[in-house]
């Protein structure tokens, strides 16, 4: 399944990507599974998703929790807790 992933703020700086298109293996269709799959890329990713900091997610512009599922061509975003206002 192909999706687009966006990264924002501190997370963008840590992973050094603002966006990427990925082709996921079968079975990776929830936020938690995607985090786990990305963690397999190495220490930086592992630390990002399993370290102390909270990583929030959105699917197609809607805030979601870890169990949310996405579909082909969806836009998934990872970012830290928001600090606007």
């Amino acid at each position: 399944m192909k999706i687009t992933i966006l990264y924002f703020a501190r997370i963008k700086e840590v992973v050094n990507y603002s966006s990427e298109d990925v082709d996921l293996p079968e079975g990776v269709e929830t936020i938690v599974a995607l985090k786990s799959w990305l963690s397999g890329r190495g220490d930086t990713w592992q630390k990002l998703f399993s370290g102390g900091g909270v990583v929030r997610a959105a699917i197609n512009h809607e805030l979601v929790d870890d169990m949310a599922t996405f579909d082909e061509d969806d836009e998934v975003a990872f970012f830290p807790p928001v600090t606007g206002g």
């Binding site: 924002f8 703020a9 501190r10 959105a58 975003a77 970012f79 928001v82 600090t83 606007g84 206002g85």
Partner: peptide, 8 residues
């Protein structure tokens, strides 16, 4: 806005 709008 402080907790749900995506600003950093």
């Amino acid at each position: 806005l402080k907790t749900e709008a995506p600003f950093w």
